[in-house]
Design a protein around this nucleic acid. Structure first.
Length: 262
DNA sequence: ATCTATTCCTGGCTGC
DNA sequence: TGCAGCCAGGAATAGA
């Protein structure tokens, strides 16, 4: 389940190997991966140089000579160099002798080509590393939904998913069902710090390897070893010792400490 | 406008 | 042991 730290790690392994190369051939083996755009993507990509590769939230954006290619890895998407075709290979890119395979078991991921940056990218909220504590606080005003739902929906900040929302809320001592508009200025500041800390540490660890996540060179991450709540139902909270509880918030499995998070 | 519920998909797990 | 049935979840979409 690639979230911001995993996607950042993948982009960092992609960029040095692909920048300046040309996509001289691409092949799409599953129609579902192209569901968001009817453009003949293989034609559009043919011969184009990769000028830069950027992360926007959980999206990977390839800036090309003409237009952009936007990849979202969904739940189980992987980009792998020279891994060979598997039953789950959904797309293949040949780039001046280097082959990039896009594998995705559950097919929640997507690939599209667009002449300009598509709306679903430009509409996203701020990068966590760009937003200020004050801006985060203001983004919670008048929002009647839970803080967890707000962080998941990518409109205030982009890139957090189920794992890092749970981890950030634990660090900030905020209950996942707390109404966003009820956060005090100080609590929002604590959340801002917790979010940056957990993302920074996770990137340093190469992400969390759940569901066999690996980067483009096949390396696993190790941040799952440092999770405080995610996947730790029933285990003691490392701050107070009480058992971590699992509930449902915003239709998502949610892990928290009933004592530390009010 | 804002929020909630549903949908997509399939390997792996649970329980009978 | 075998198998039906359920579960996980990001984001688009429909509905309230």
């Amino acid at each position: 389940m690639p979230e911001l730290p995993e996607v950042e790690t993948i982009v960092r392994t992609l960029a040095p190997r692909l920048l300046g190369r040309h996509i001289h051939f691409s092949e799409f083996l599953a129609p579902l991966v192209l569901r968001y755009n009817r453009d003949p993507i293989a034609e559009r990509l043919a011969g184009q140089a990769i000028r830069s590769i950027e992360r926007r939230g959980k999206f990977i954006v390839f800036i090309l000579d003409r237009g952009v290619m936007v990849i979202h890895l969904g739940m189980t998407g992987k980009l792998l160099f020279d891994s060979g075709r598997t039953p789950y290979t959904r797309a293949i890119f040949s780039c001046d002798g280097l082959t990039l395979f896009y594998d995705d078991i559950r097919q929640f991921g997507s690939i599209e080509w667009c002449p300009d940056m598509p709306d679903r990218i430009t509409r996203l909220g701020a990068e966590p590393f760009d937003i200020t504590p004050d801006e985060l606080f203001r983004a919670t005003r008048n929002r009647r939904t839970s803080i967890k739902a707000l962080l998941l929906n990518q409109t205030a900040v982009r890139g957090l998913g189920n794992i890092y929302v749970d981890e950030a809320l634990w660090r900030a001592g905020i209950h996942p069902r707390r109404i966003a508009a009820k956060l005090t200025y100080n609590r929002a500041g604590a959340l801002h710090k917790a979010m940056l800390d957990v993302l920074t540490e996770a990137i340093d660890c190469g992400g969390s390897s759940i569901s066999n996540y690996v980067d483009a060179t096949g390396r696993s991450g190790s941040f799952q070893e440092r999770h405080k709540v995610y996947g730790r139902e029933g285990q003691p909270c490392q701050r107070c010792g009480l058992a971590i509880r699992r509930i449902t918030v915003a239709q998502r499995g949610t892990h928290y400490c009933p004592k530390c998070q009010r």
